[in-house]
Amino acid sequence: MFLSSCSCHLAHLVFDRLSNNYVGDLDNLRLSGKVGGVDLDLAQVRAFVAVAEQLHFGRAAAKLFLTQQALSKRIQRLESALGEALFLRYHQNVELTPAGRRFLPHARTLLAVADAAALAARPQARPLRVDVWGPVHHPLRLMRQLADESPELIFELSMRRSLGSALEALERGELDVAFGRPHDLGRRWPADVSRRLIALEPIAAGVVQGHPLAEAPVLTAQELKTTGLWWPFEESPSELVGLLRSYAQHLGVPVQATALNLGVEHTLADLRRHPHRVTPLGARWPMPDDIRVIPLSPTPYLPWSVVWRPDNPHPLLPQLLSRLDCLIAFDPSKDWLPEADLADFLAFSAG
């Protein structure tokens, strides 16, 4: 069964002045006084966390299966209840205010407590919480396939667009399963979290129709040294940036990166505005007719590992993990992986 991540298990969770030791770090004394006795609507709190993680109202609304208007109303009501602005708004892009940054960890705790309370009352009711990284990537296609093939697997999905963020949620107990590339995360891999390689997703080059290379059957280092590669992010998600920079360095081609990443549609719109650019895209992503997807040589792959905590007692977790065993084809003579990922693949093959 395929469930949205916006379900709210408890209607309200009440804070009173006796809980000041819990919320005292939320804000200054003036705001702490306001929080006392306020009924916090979990649907509003869930909306806040979604916007805080996406920093974009459109993506947060899509994640929660809401209209942007409905999402904005929930945020406004929460801000009214707290007596403080939680976001600075710039059209659809947003930033957390200092109050929002202080509220975020407690908001996540509220949702985790609410989910735990619901699970305690109905131990068979809670679905697996699975982060599939993004809307066009392999993990989402995989989970859709599992939803069709195994209706007894009940799960809800989130899209944090970074294994680093998902890993933190996994450690806090907010997620049961995540997918991603476990390298270039800028941190040590946690000892209490397991991972297993399950798939290699091929990466191709995208150009607009009419680009000088649009009719090329394949792009190699020779062509890319002239055009370079462009992508719409600079430092985050670090695991994807690390892979793409390693590939560009392997080919000896220049890179241009811009900071604003608002999703695939925005990337394609930017490509149309700058028709000389060549950008990495998933070779199997659905594309509009005016975008030409050209194979790269050697073919770079985005590795996907499933990530979980072995001490997680959820009864559906072993069944999900057992369904994720995949055959992976990789030819070192024509395909490419960074060294760390190649080591993962060799370990997978040996096992």
Rank of each mutant, 00 (worst) to 15 (best):
L3E: 14
S5K: 13
S5C: 15
S7T: 14
H12D: 15
H12V: 07
F15S: 01
D16E: 12
D16K: 11
R17N: 03
S19Y: 08
S19M: 12
G24F: 15
N28Q: 08
L31Y: 12
D41P: 14
L42V: 02
L42P: 10
A43W: 09
Q44G: 10
V45K: 01
V45R: 00
V49F: 03
V49K: 00
A52G: 06
L55A: 13
R59T: 07
A60R: 11
K63L: 15
F65E: 15
Q76D: 10
L78R: 07
E79T: 07
A81L: 03
A85T: 13
A85Q: 10
L88R: 15
R89L: 15
N93M: 13
V94P: 00
L96A: 04
T97F: 07
T97N: 02
L104K: 08
A107Y: 05
R108E: 15
L111K: 09
L111T: 02
V113A: 08
V113G: 08
D115E: 12
A116Q: 12
A118N: 08
A118E: 13
R126T: 09
R126K: 14
P127F: 06
V132R: 05
W133Q: 15
G134C: 08
L140P: 05
R141S: 12
L142S: 12
L146A: 02
E149G: 10
P151R: 07
L153Q: 03
E156G: 14
S158A: 04
R160K: 12
L163F: 13
L163D: 05
G164T: 12
A169C: 06
L170I: 10
E171Q: 14
R172V: 09
G173C: 10
V177C: 02
H183A: 14
D184C: 08
R187K: 06
V193S: 05
S194P: 03
R195I: 00
R196H: 08
E201G: 05
V207T: 07
V207P: 04
E215R: 11
T220C: 09
A221C: 07
L224Y: 07
T226W: 10
W231A: 08
P232N: 02
P232G: 01
E239A: 13
G242V: 03
L243G: 01
L244N: 06
L244Q: 08
Y247H: 04
Q249R: 06
G252F: 00
G252C: 12
Q256A: 06
A259Y: 10
N261W: 05
L262S: 14
L262I: 09
V264T: 12
E265N: 13
H266A: 11
L271H: 00
L271A: 02
R272E: 13
R273W: 14
P275T: 03
R277G: 03
R277P: 06
P280T: 15
A283P: 00
W285T: 08
P286C: 09
I294Q: 03
P295S: 10
S297Q: 06
P298T: 04
P300F: 03
Y301I: 03
Y301H: 12
Y301P: 01
P303H: 00
P303L: 07
S305L: 04
V307R: 02
W308A: 07
W308E: 06
P315F: 00
L316P: 07
L316W: 02
P318H: 08
L321A: 09
D325C: 06
L327G: 10
D335I: 02
W336S: 05
W336K: 02
L342K: 00
S349I: 11
G351D: 05
